[in-house]
Structure formats: structure tokens, C-alpha cells
Design a protein around this nucleic acid. Structure first.
Lengths: 218, 218
DNA sequence: GAAGGTTATCGACACCGTGTCGAATGAGTC
DNA sequence: GACTCATTCGACACGGTGTCGATAACCTTC
């Protein structure tokens, strides 16, 4: 099972054409952004902060990126690629048993987003206000849901899992849960599951809902 | 089981003191806000929009509310009270069986937030940028998680549910799922469960994870 | 029925962040 | 040495926020 390409226009997001020298500046902006995001929320970072951090003036920033959000989008593209790659690795390697297969899939997301905590939080922050970010997330999420639904259906077809909820609905619910729970754990505000326990908690919910029949007639 | 009071300073959020006449104006601002939120996202609504909508000038707005966010907070307080009231009704009325009890609890949230779709979306939008909103939500969420964890523990104690994940972790996961899934369903962007099916989908996940043992040793 | 307080209102201002324009700089090419 | 073209930034216009001080409307209370 391969991860479907999402056809993101990764290269077209940054500078207008592809330039020779100013690549360093573009990179400087990106690294400045990730550094600042570790310190303060996206809303508290101005274009001027980004520009100064990269050693250029504010107007010059606009030569490299059309807006602050475009920088975030570029950063996001990278993380998504990382997550997809991690996912592909999971599906390529043979799983040592049922539990282990699902565990590795959940761990793949967990690790990827944990490695980019600040970015993950900024992502959520930008999603509400920016249509492009929203659409990028929708694409990514759809791919995961589809993949997950296929996997559930395969388990049902081979008789390992009972039928019940439509596979897609279950996949949406489980992926939504993961997103929200991981976000809460990483952001630390509001009730959350402890970081050491979070993968196991999610895994139990996944296994139970996928492999167990719904409640016995009460 | 009663819903614990969250000690919100509801009255202190609006106008500085409690005034006689200008109450209409305050109300006008609140209804304008909810009306505008049905049309456009929170970020696209300015203090000026709110003021004009209520028939006053921008500076006068600040006589009634310290900021745009304060208006939202006031609106949110009301919806939370509504949700708590609905919840209290659920726990007061005797349930016709296990499934029915949980179903009514999930439906209570669903109905409340569906009745204030626009507000629910604005809430999520404001949460990232505003600490007060974040804290209000954390309080509300914590109360629900606590209540839910208690209910699960009670079921385990009376032998109706098997032990497994810590009740609180399970409660956090399930409530997080509900939040995210309902949000996706109401907002309509990204993969979501259909509105007619969403309560049933959530219910099945709740029942299965609460009452079924985790996966049989595979 | 003036005097004094409080409630409510708004014009004008200072501030900050965004995004654009047009003019300069400088490196490479013919 | 003139021509291009990438790169840079000062200066501007715009739109939003929040505050200040002046003023109007309305109670009281003597």
C-alpha cells in the first residue's frame, strides 16, 4: 500500500522564480521562522521580525515570500513530506503482528509532530484564519483517512475485524481523535494525556474499535 | 451526579459597572456579533463592524466591552451555560438503558453546539490567539472529562465495564474525539462524518471503548 | 430650576502591522 | 560602457486598535 501523492505545489510557494544566489536568504527566513515559533506564537511574530532575523529589510522579505503565511506553508510542506515518508516506511516494513503494525503507524505521526512541536502548534493556529493552510491540512488528512479506511476494510475482508461502523466514518473519528489528543499533549493547555502514555492510549482505542464488536446487547 | 460550577466571572466580563439604561446597547452588540459571525469569520469582523451594527461609534463600543474578544467570551459563557444545563438534564432524567444514557449525553453536546454553529467555529478560531478563551475552554473541557471519567469508573465499579485504560485517559481521548469530529462536521472543511450520522458514530466508539475489553491476544 | 454628579457618546489622535511602488545598487554580459 | 536583471530598501498609503478629552443628556437634590 503506497501513500498517494497529494500534488502539492511545493516549489511554487516561495520566491516568484527560481533564483541562483538569494537561496541563502530564503533559507534564513525559514530557519528564523522556526526559531521564533519556538519562542512565541505565530500571531506575535511580524514580517519585520522575520526580515530582521534573516538580516534583510521588511520590503525585501516580500521579494522572497508573498506573506508570513506563505513561510508557514513552506515549512508545513516539509513536515508533511516527513510524515508521509515515515508512513511509507511503516507500510514497507513487515509488521511483527497486528498490534505492532498499528502501533508503528500511530508512532510515526507522534514522532514526526513531536519533532516539530512549535510548527504543529502554529499550524493549528493558522488553520482557522488562512484558507490555504486549511486546504493543505484537508488534503493531508484526507489521504490519511483514506489509507486508514482501506486498512480497516482489508482487515474486515480477511475476517480479522468484525463489521460495524462504515470503515470511513471510523477512520475519520480515529484520526480526528489522534489529531486533537496529540495537539493537547504537545500544547500543554487544557486536559491532556501524558506524553509517555499518549501513544498507548490512542492505540488501545484504535484496536478496540477496529477489532472488537460493538457493545453486547445490554 | 451534578455538574460542578466552574466559577466563571460571567458578569464581570462586560461593561465596567452594572448600568441601568445602556443594557440595550450591550445586547445590541452581542446580537450583532452573533449575526455577523454567521456571515464571516471572526478575523474578518472589526470593532467598527460591531459598533456600527449596534448603532454606535467605535469609541463608544469600548465603553461597553474592552475588546472584540470580550464580546466573544460573553457569548461563549452563555453557550457553555446552555450546554451545562442540557447536561444536567441528561443526568437528572433516568436513562432507558445503558446505550440510551450515553447517547443522550453525546446528543446534548451535539444539539447545543449545532444550535450555535457560528459561535462554535469562532470559538475555535479565537482559542489559538487568546489566552482567556483558551482558559475558559480548558475549564469547560476539564469539567466534562472529569464527569466522564467518573461515569466510566462507576461502570467499572459496578462490574458493567471491564478495566483497561485509566478512566481519565480514556475520557480525555473520547472527549477530544467528540470535539474535533463535531467541529469538522459543523465547519464542513476537511473530511468529516455526515451530520445525520455523527452522533451514532461517536456513540459506537464510546460504547465499544468503555464496555469492550481491549483486543483479544492476537 | 440652577448646581452637581454620573452615564453615555464621539471626534481626533497616536500607534502598529501590512503590502506596494519606485528609485537605487551591483553583478554579469556583450 | 551600455544593457539587463536580480536584489535591496526608503517612503508611502491603508486599515485596524485603543485612548483622551470634550460634550451632551439625564438624574438628583436642595
Amino acid at each position: 500500500m503506497s501513500v498517494p501523492a497529494r500534488d502539492r505545489t511545493s516549489a511554487a510557494r516561495g520566491r516568484r522564480p527560481a533564483r541562483p544566489s538569494g537561496d541563502d536568504r530564503e533559507l534564513a527566513i525559514l530557519t528564523t521562522a522556526e526559531r521564533l515559533l519556538a519562542e512565541k506564537p505565530l500571531a506575535a511574530i511580524s514580517v519585520d521580525d522575520l526580515a530582521r532575523g534573516a538580516g534583510i529589510s521588511r520590503p525585501t522579505f516580500y521579494f522572497y515570500f508573498p506573506s508570513k503565511d506563505a513561510v508557514l506553508l513552506t515549512l508545513l510542506d516539509r513536515v508533511v513530506d516527513e510524515a508521509d515518508a515515515a508512513m511509507r516506511r511503516v507500510f514497507d516494513a513487515p509488521a511483527a503482528g497486528l498490534r505492532d503494525g498499528w502501533r508503528r503507524a500511530i508512532t510515526a505521526y507522534y514522532e514526526t509532530f513531536r519533532a516539530h512541536r512549535a510548527l504543529t502548534l502554529a499550524w493549528a493556529e493558522a488553520r482557522s484564519g488562512n484558507a490555504e493552510v486549511r486546504e493543505l491540512w484537508a488534503q493531508v488528512f484526507e489521504a490519511w483517512v483514506q489509507q486508514c479506511a482501506d486498512a480497516i476494510q482489508a482487515e474486515r475482508d480477511r475476517g480479522a475485524a468484525p463489521s460495524g461502523l462504515p470503515a470511513r466514518d471510523l477512520a475519520v473519528a480515529l484520526n480526528s481523535m489522534n489529531e486533537r489528543v496529540l495537539y493537547a499533549t504537545f500544547s500543554g493547555d487544557g486536559p491532556a494525556v501524558a506524553e509517555e502514555a499518549v501513544v498507548d492510549v490512542l492505540l488501545e482505542v484504535w484496536l478496540t474499535t477496529i477489532y472488537q464488536r460493538t457493545m453486547p446487547a445490554a
